[in-house]
Nucleic acid binder design. Structure first.
Lengths: 338, 338
DNA sequence: CTGAAAGCGCTTACAG
DNA sequence: CTGAAAGCGCTTACAG
């Protein structure tokens, strides 16, 4: 592969001049510029990003550590993150933690070793010592979706409180009184917040959330299945199951089917996170939808601000309720809402 | 961030010795090793991967260019690719082409500029000049899933011929005679092969595949919707629609629902690519499943072989039919197959 | 076993 | 406007 030296030789100038042309430095004669550009073209020269990074101490690369790529919510988030980063001139390297703290740390390590300019993370757990260390070390860092109390970095996330309240009101209107939730890991903020929003919304309607109606999940399908099996084995099973993410909802559906029950006739189901497939499940699933694209964009912008020395903003965007048919519907409202 | 110089100073040795310890070079005294390790620990030193890459001319990084991350098939592929790569000591950087050739080229460029050790690609189109150039330039490269005739690199893919034949036999048994397909882009190998396998299977049963029953899609949901609308508007609509990937099947479902028709009573539906949600759609969808994990592993191994100077192997793995309920079922076979 | 030195491919103050 | 030189943080032949 041709190096800057080859280009300099071919153009009959110094490597300094080649570098100036490549970086559009103003003080280069038109003639030198032409000769360099011709040489670049002739040799098919491409600057070595590794060398450039070593010299400039910046990689124009962002690290994105997400808890589970297979979760469509995070896949979508990752896609929009890359899109916005590209628009701002950054590449992004994704690290998938598979909801495993040690894998998360592995990726953070690797990313830091590669000297990424900044880190976007949706922590898989309550936060490892490494994550705290990284934030303290001055590496620009932003939390997206999930965050860790006590680590002082900008947070870009959705607030589901209002939407969960709307959901509970919707369920109440449909006559449901025994509502259960499959929670995410207690160590994650989203795991907690969704349960608390749910509990609070129930309380306002004078409904209780007994412990037996709180299933402990880990945002993965299998845990949704297990939790739902637990609910169904109860002497008085709930009338509604609310899964705190889309994968646990998938598991819940599995469990309900396996029991030979039907949604919403035998039991209602709602989920957090809207995904394209929810329109086509049997029945279409009522969900709390997050503004994924906007979250991704705001997170990237906050990180770029931090990297480039501007003041970053924490952002909280509201989630919203999308009513479909999985919780039942009353006779007066036969239209299905997309 | 501490550099190798700091470690050397702290340990009272030269940077050469530090480097040797870090790379477990045999000829280092036990005492020097201890001192270096202690210094590394004290300083929290991590080698700068950028500098190391510049010096060694290798990045221990693989590039993976996929045509669409939002397609669950590719998401899963990417996940397993990263897993296997990690096991072999490589990181992977994913480039998402969104089925757009120019975006694909952008990612290939960026990846090459970063001097990745090898490139895994599932081409979004018939292959750009750039892709050919890269393969010729000696950059280790392997095609996965899709490939480009005339570019001589190892190919790791699934062969759907047998499974498509099984599918067509299944459809024929259920009494279906008018079968349509939503094809992928003609420029992609998977786009072509699936149509050809389908056509051939029909031919063997004495059935024709009229042009009107071949919808042109692009592996995205919207195209599946359009193609299906076209089929349904035909004077004699097909009895079965076979979508050549899972996203077009999603679009087909959209179109069928919008028309107020039901699957499989009014029209049957089958798809290529199995994904977890197909179990929970209404009805569960009959598909041709690819051995995604095995494909990913074989592709990474082939690429590592190429990079490390061994002889890589092209691999073709069979896909298999998974029968569910979206094509109807006869009275004697009431069990639903997972 | 160890260190001084060269060099990977760039960028950038410095001097002219 | 231009070039020689230093230096980013490593690794590794070479000499001892």
């Amino acid at each position: 592969m041709a190096s800057i030296k080859d280009v300099a030789a071919q153009a009959g100038v110094s490597v300094a001049t080649v570098s100036r042309v490549l970086n559009s430095h103003p003080s280069v004669s038109a003639e030198a510029r032409t000769r360099v550009l011709a040489a670049v073209d002739a040799l098919g020269y491409r600057p070595n990003a590794v060398a450039r990074s070593l010299r400039t101490a910046q990689t124009r690369t962002l690290g994105l550590v997400i808890s589970d790529v297979l979760n469509p919510y995070f896949t979508e988030l990752a896609r929009f993150v890359e899109e916005e980063a590209r628009a701002l001139g950054y590449s992004v390297i994704i690290g998938n933690a598979d909801e495993r703290p040690e894998l998360q740390d592995h990726h953070i390590r690797t990313l830091i070793d590669r000297r990424i300019d900044g880190l976007l993370v949706s922590p898989a757990d309550g936060g490892s010592p490494l994550m705290r260390e990284v934030s303290l070390s001055g590496t620009p860092m932003v939390f997206v979706d999930r965050w860790i109390p006590g680590i002082d970095v900008p947070v870009v996330r959705a607030d589901g409180t209002g939407a969960v309240k709307d959901l509970v009101a919707h369920l109440h209107e449909l006559g449901h009184r025994r509502l259960a939730i499959i929670a995410g890991p207690a160590a994650t903020t989203t795991g907690n917040e969704r349960v608390e929003a749910f509990r609070e919304a129930l309380r306002e309607l004078g409904l209780a959330l007994p412990d037996a109606y709180i299933g402990q999940g880990d945002f993965q399908a299998a845990s949704g299945r297990r939790a739902t099996e637990g609910f169904l084995a109860l002497p008085e099973p709930p009338e509604v199951v609310f899964a705190a993410d889309n994968l646990m909802a998938l598991g819940a559906l599995d469990a309900i089917r396996a029991r030979g029950l039907r949604v919403p006739d035998d039991i209602a189901l709602a989920a957090f996170d809207d995904i394209p497939w929810f329109v086509h499940t049997d029945p279409p699933i009522t969900t709390v939808a997050q503004p994924t694209a906007e979250l991704a964009r705001a997170a990237v912008r906050a990180l770029a601000d931090l990297i480039e020395g501007r003041t970053p903003q924490s952002v909280t965007l509201p989630a919203r309720l999308v009513v479909r048919r999985s919780c039942g519907q009353d006779a007066t409202d036969q239209r299905s809402t997309r």
